[in-house]
Design a binder for these strands. Structure first.
Lengths: 134, 134, 134, 134
DNA sequence: TTTT
DNA sequence: TTTT
């Protein structure tokens, strides 16, 4: 079990790349305020890296930008990589499988049908929730 | 472990009551859209009962109303009660310990300092997160 | 956003059915202890209905039984149905997309490769998490 | 909103310290397996740092050790600190407010009443969940 | 630096 | 490196 759920604002526009395999990856950081103030009476903020893949990546890159409020759900991942100096470094990031746009402008012309996107490898099924024998 | 995290809109204004013990309780229902459409191509919605206690109850009653968008975190609770007809019934509800106001009007005069409220029995402590020896 | 995460024990063996469409559905209830005691000093328990679909349903039916400890992640769903008396009733249940077996006996002969099952409609992809250009 | 829920095994015994303020802090790392295998067919693991405070810290230090299975709930925190070389570094960790012991040996003599610990600054209240007028 |  |  590895679940992360966050609500925060993008600190910059998302960055979209394509791997040599053709897979789309979008990355961005969100600012999440802590629910309490510190001993100096200031509200602190965590800046959390988000990674999204495939269709979800493209949806984020096309629809989100700096300052937007999002709900994110995913898993916490720790990746190690080689620094420029040859040293091993670690990055912690949230690999999102769901991003919900929370302050989408209502008067936006040019439609799309949802403010919530999920990362499925393919058609998720969807349960025929009615007609159940219980 | 019993965690529920929801984002949805209030279907009505919250109802605030006081128990004979003096404890404040606020209840409301939020509409949460399902992330996919059903076989008829319609987007379905779950209507989920939320219960809040004490200071959080009063904050919700004072600041929220029908249509507002909230993030809720809490636990799932199943309560049985005696119906008017003497029959035993069950209610399922989310007992919230955190409610975050997500579409608070910016131009609102008359201040309060946060859009996020938690239900602590008392001062939660707050970790001195700096000056750690690691 | 609609996320539920629970840890609890099965109150009975799972029930497995097949809809006329051929889709497998397994249902069971888990007992989840509350983290605190009530005013009489007793620890209370919530009994929460879980529904699983497709491959995950079959995995649960084949591998779980009464008393087993599981971690469950999914979404909260409220369904209405017609009672035998013609009255409309509501059921609240957690539609699980992930079930983790937490007290799997180690000495079990006859292998399977994981104690964690997820409900994907299909191949979930799996991110090529290495070789990233960041 | 900033929620993390994990199930994993301790990679070492917890380390307990006391700040000059007298506050107890316990730290440990848990190994969390990813739900799928990578392109080489191997199951990968994330090693995630957990921090606990006060009574919860002491409970963890007294009752947990290397290899134990735990459920953890808390928030994701990113802290910056000065490295020995004068460079600014970042640590990402989960500040836990709840730790549930999942493979506690049953035959353990010497009792304690719960396998679940929460970090409250003080008495959490506890809702009188019966006798509600609804 | 890692657990079963 | 950060958002409102």
């Amino acid at each position: 079990m590895n679940k992360v759920i966050l609500i925060g604002r993008l600190t910059r526009d998302p960055e979209l790349r394509y791997l040599t395999s053709g897979a789309a990856v979008a990355t961005f950081t969100i600012a999440v305020d802590r629910p309490f103030t510190n001993q100096q009476g200031e509200r602190e903020t965590d800046f959390i890296k988000i990674v999204t893949w495939r269709k979800l990546a493209e949806n984020c890159a096309n629809n989100l930008n700096k300052g937007r409020l999002v709900g994110v759900s995913g898993r916490l991942q720790i990746r190690s990589y080689e620094g420029e100096d040859g040293q091993r470094r670690w990055v912690t990031e949230v690999v999102a499988d769901e991003v919900q746009f929370l302050d989408w402008p209502k008067d936006r012309s040019g439609g799309f049908d949802s403010n919530e996107y999920e990362d499925f490898g393919s058609d998720p099924g969807g349960e025929p929730s009615d007609d159940l024998p219980f």
